[in-house]
């Protein structure tokens, strides 16, 4: 369909002609890789000091992904800004006057945004894995070992889904400020705390980010009620729900 490709091209130009887009993606990459390498380095040097239980369940893949908890914030920022900039600037009126088919408009933006975060997410995941393993030395694993490739691809998928989830939520909230003030504390503080406290753990595990990280662990600690793919599926369902809510809002509200 000629019309659909036109709109996708237009959204591609939109995403790539504003600095914020490219900056947030670059920051997501850098932060994830740099912190992943630093934490891998730290653990490599202090491994002998760890308690035995932690040494037995040591997960070299998840360790190299440690920077993702910070890097994901930049991915979330990308998702928020991609959508919210339409509203904060008034561009939404020009956009919808040009493409009044709101479902098509949203789909095109979603495709472009997803493609960008998928590519950056995958590159980030692979780079941070290989650099992290290089630093871990004797503790490292190779990409060919059981479940490792799944975990590394999973890392890219995780970053993609968290950004797309943020896009969906922002279509509902229509404001960068609102979206940031909800999503950043949620994923940086609330869910990690819920998942690390014994009493709230069972609840915390069901949040999209906590469920999604299951795909990145190679060593199954047996604490979670779902496996790696089950966890990713939970995250996908959250993301779909956010997008549906976003679509309904876009369809119903005046621009």
């Amino acid at each position: 369909m000629a019309h659909t490709t036109q709109v996708i091209r237009s959204e591609w130009t939109k995403a790539t002609t504003v600095r914020a887009t490219l900056w947030t993606l670059a920051i997501a990459f850098l932060v994830t890789v740099v912190f992943g390498v630093l934490i891998s380095l730290l653990l490599n040097n202090t491994f002998e000091d760890l308690p035995e239980r932690e040494r037995l369940t040591f997960d070299p893949v998840l360790t190299s992904f440690a920077g993702m908890s910070l890097g994901q914030l930049a991915m979330i920022a990308f998702g928020i800004l991609l959508v919210a900039s339409e509203y904060s600037t008034g561009m939404i009126r020009a956009s919808l006057a040009a493409v009044p088919q709101r479902g098509l408009f949203m789909t095109a933006k979603l495709l472009v945004g997803t493609l960008l975060v998928l590519v950056v997410g995958m590159v980030t995941s692979f780079v941070t894995f290989f650099l992290g393993q290089a630093v871990l030395g004797d503790l490292s694993v190779s990409i060919g070992e059981t479940n490792v490739l799944r975990a590394v691809i999973g890392g890219g998928l995780y970053m993609t889904l968290i950004a797309v989830f943020a896009m969906g939520i922002t279509w509902v909230l229509r404001s960068a400020l609102l979206a940031f003030s909800i999503l950043v504390p949620l994923f940086f503080l609330v869910t990690p705390i819920l998942a690390s406290i014994e009493a709230t753990r069972d609840v915390g595990y069901w949040f999209p980010d906590q469920a999604g990280t299951a795909i990145m662990s190679v060593v199954d600690t047996g604490e979670r009620p779902y496996g790696p793919w089950g966890g990713l599926l939970i995250m996908v369902l959250w993301t779909v729900a956010a997008l549906v809510a976003g679509y309904v809002t876009l369809k119903k509200r005046d621009a």
């Binding site: 002609t17 504003v18 600037t89 009126r93």
Partner: peptide, 8 residues
């Protein structure tokens, strides 16, 4: 109102 992204 202006319907333009100020950074584009």
């Amino acid at each position: 109102a202006k319907a333009v992204h100020p950074g584009r």
